[in-house]
């Protein structure tokens, strides 16, 4: 080859080292890093699609999800012999369009998931920070409350409280917040305890930083990575809990829609109309699976140790591929890459 190819490293062109990273360059970096993990990218794409689906539900849904129609009851999906393209995923026992209900159902799951994680997370983080920072009696009282509440018969107590107060979406959110804050408090307290002992926190206290500055400026950044992963994983738990509660009839109440509620409605028709439970259930599973895939990418990416491991793994894979392409180099390189690690 006569013309030498210009050598560019992607990271160097992404941003000038002297400049502060702009939003665009950060997004660029995020995308580039996410693309390395194909399953994580898939998960992220599905999450974005679900969010759009929930927000734009009135535009996307072909019908009103609550509109009943006696003439078109229990129509199968379009690709089956008796189906029609008017109802792509068929209709339920009241003639409601399954596709529209699935689209609107995303709202309940995502709304409950996001709100519960935000509220329970903030509450748990504040209590955890407080317990870890103050130590002493404050710490032992808060942690005792956590220990005691963790040992409660969780779901049964939730059932009792909801059945007494009366089921509604608001009740469900409050109850889930009250029963899910403890894990955040535990994680945060543990990290705060270990970070407090580091020299830079001591130094910050020594030169007279205000307590709030020490907590938010020096301690809180250590918490972003574990809290991010924890919050995402908790989100999947809450989505599943919302679905289960709605399935049991103690969550979202009709005429509102929820995937769990729709599976419960379709339960009586599983012998004649399999599509009634299939599509809402599939939606729950897809949501949770996508978030899980994305979460495992986030965990690896935000944890320096895991990043190191992944980097080494990719290097090894690259070397192995190169070795396969040039047989002469194979013997020497395979030796250095082989063996159980």
């Amino acid at each position: 080859m006569a013309i030498p190819m210009p050598v560019t490293t992607p990271v160097a062109t992404a941003r000038n080292a002297a400049q502060r990273p702009t939003l665009l360059s950060r997004l660029d970096e995020f995308g580039r890093e996410l693309w390395q993990d194909k399953l994580g990218t898939l998960g992220f794409a599905v999450i974005v699609a679900l969010l759009l689906m929930a927000i734009l539900a009135p535009l996307l849904a072909p019908y009103d999800p609550a509109a009943q129609s006696v003439i078109s009851r229990l129509k199968p999906p379009a690709w089956l012999p008796k189906g029609s393209w008017e109802h792509i995923l068929g209709t339920d026992h009241l003639g409601r369009d399954v596709l529209s209900r699935v689209i609107y159902g995303a709202r309940a799951s995502l709304l409950v998931g996001v709100l519960v994680v935000l509220f329970a997370g903030s509450f748990g983080v504040v209590l955890g920070l407080w317990a870890g920072f103050r130590g002493g009696r404050t710490d032992s009282i808060i942690m005792r409350i956590v220990d005691v509440q963790v040992a409660f018969p969780g779901l049964l107590l939730i059932l009792l409280v909801i059945s007494v107060i009366g089921p509604s979406m608001a009740t469900m959110i409050i109850v889930l917040v009250v029963t899910n804050w403890m894990v955040y408090a535990r994680v945060v307290r543990g990290i705060v305890l270990s970070v407090r002992q580091t020299p830079y926190v001591e130094a910050a206290e020594m030169i007279g930083c205000k307590t709030s500055r020490v907590i938010f400026r020096h301690i809180l950044p250590n918490l972003t990575s574990p809290l991010l992963t924890l919050g995402i994983l908790e989100f999947t738990n809450i989505v599943l809990a919302e679905a289960a509660l709605s399935f049991l009839g103690l969550g979202v109440q009709p005429p509102a829609t929820s995937w769990g509620l729709d599976v419960a409605n379709g339960r009586d028709y599983i012998f004649v109309a399999w599509w009634l439970i299939t599509f809402p259930g599939l939606s729950i599973a897809t949501t949770v699976l996508a978030v899980n895939l994305f979460a495992s990418w986030v965990r690896v990416t935000t944890d320096p140790q895991e990043r190191e491991k992944r980097f080494a793994y990719q290097r090894a894979k690259l070397a192995a591929r190169r070795a396969r392409r040039s047989p002469q180099a194979q013997s020497s390189e395979a030796k250095s890459q082989g063996g159980r690690s």
């Binding site: 999947t236 599976v263 439970i277 259930g281 599973a285 949770v288 699976l289 899980n292």
Partner: peptide, 18 residues
């Protein structure tokens, strides 16, 4: 394992019944 964590239990049970 990821699938096991992602399937709602009640739905999985119903599918197995079907």
């Amino acid at each position: 394992g990821l699938f096991g964590l992602s399937l709602p239990q009640f739905w999985f049970g119903l599918l197995m019944i079907v």
